[in-house]
Structures are given as C-alpha cells and as structure tokens.
Amino acid sequence: MTTGKEATLHQRILSDIESRIVSGDWPPGHRIPFELALAEQYDCSRMTVNKVLTQLARAGLIERRKRSGSFVTQPQAQSAVLEIHDIKSEILSLNLPYSHRIVKRAKRKGRPEDGRRLQFAGAVPVLEITCIHYAGQRPFCLEDRVINLNAVPEAEQVDFDELPPGPWLINQVPWSTAEHQIRAIPADSEAAANLDIAKGTACLVIERRTWSGLGPITHVRLTYPGDRHTLVARFTPSS
C-alpha cells in the first residue's frame, strides 16, 4: 500500500521532472538522470522513481530505452488536413504552454506575389504578418500571412499581440471556402533563424487560402520543423 508520504514524494518528483521538460530546461533528446541517481537525490527507493518514470513514459514525455536510460521525447502534434486547425490547441495537446510573438506587421500595397497568393487580379492593399508560435520556450511553427484589407479592413487596427491572426480572422470573418496545399521544403535562412533550426532542415509547409462572399480573405504559410508535426486525414467512402 502506498503511504501518504510516498504519494507526496511521488508527486514532487513527477512535478520536478515534468516542469523541467515543459519549460525546455530538459530539451528533446536530453537523458534523464538514472533511477539510482534520482533515488539518491530524493532520498527514496528506486521503486518510487521507477513509478514516476513509467508515468512520464505513458504520458509521452519521455522514452525509456533498455540499457540506455530515459530520454525526453520530441513532441509531435497532429492536425487534420481537412480542417482549419488551431496552433494553440495543437501545442496544448502536447501538454506544453503556448505563446506567440509577432515578428513583423506591415500594411503595404499588394505586389504581384500577393496576387498569386490570394488569387486576386489587380493590386489590393494587404497586411503582412510574420508570427512565431512557441511550445514552451521552443519555436513550434512559423506563420507567414497576408490579409486582404479590402475584405477585412478592420485588421489594420489590430496588433495581434493578444490573439494571433488565425483565430482572430475565424472569429471576425465567416469563410465559405478553404484550400490547403502541403509540401516539404528545406528551411531557408529566414525560416531557420526564426525556428531555431539549422538551414536546410526538412520542414513541413502548409499553405492555406480562405475565401468569403467578399472574395479572398487571407493566405497563410505555416512552416513546421519536419519532426514536430503530423497531418491526419479522416474520410469515408463517397456514396
């Protein structure tokens, strides 16, 4: 039978290790101290430590390898291909804290590239936004977005520091059609710097356009380090 003291110690060890993983103090690939070392550190039995590590492994926070020890796992989010997914929800599903930072925000005249991205003939005023989404302290996704200000003029007055542009747009403008394009690319210098990865690292890129009755709303390019994201499609046979 587990005593109250053992239960309290179990929770303390669990909380200590979990907080180090979630904060990024122990990044993916970090080797957890061996059971014996943890038992000595907390002045407890190896059985208590083993139960803690087993619980962490079941939660997907660590991976236990025979004769090698326990290692912090690389969290991997899943999103549905056929849905407009929310990055914050992806990160929270990994039991990691979410935050975002606006790197660039500029209103400007539309360029030919914007016309191609928005699939709009002629020049339109756009709001260009670059945003980094964080899982804990690590960059999780780079968002590069243009918003058609003819369709959503109120976006010009929003700083997006409190709510990132994706969920703000969904709440603000009812969209009628969306298109996803998915590809794999090596990270260029800008993406590598923003995501804190090596240039050339394989990345998963999701590009999405949305339309409403007012025409094109936005085009967004979401870049994920390739080992941190999985796309899932669920569908049924057509009748």
Rank of each mutant, 00 (worst) to 15 (best):
D227I: 02
V205I: 09
I147E: 04
R64D: 07
R65T: 13
P165A: 14
H10S: 10
E162Q: 11
E90F: 02
G4Q: 11
E154W: 04
P225H: 03
L96K: 03
T201M: 09
Q76S: 13
A135R: 01
P167F: 00
I84H: 06
P28Q: 08
P216I: 03
Y42Q: 05
M47F: 10
S23E: 09
G136P: 04
R117A: 06
P125W: 02
I13N: 00
I185L: 10
V72R: 00
N150Y: 12
E179G: 12
E162V: 13
L222V: 04
R67Y: 14
L9D: 11
P216W: 03
A191V: 14
G24A: 10
L222T: 00
A151D: 07
A135T: 10
L169Y: 08
G60L: 00
R234T: 01
T73E: 15
D16K: 08
H229I: 10
G200A: 04
S68F: 07
P139M: 05
E113G: 13
N150K: 05
C131P: 03
E6D: 13
P186A: 03
E83A: 13
L149M: 11
W175K: 07
I87P: 01
L169C: 02
I132M: 13
P97M: 05
T2C: 08
V52S: 04
L195W: 01
I197V: 11
V220S: 04
D227V: 01
P167H: 08
R46F: 10
R138K: 13
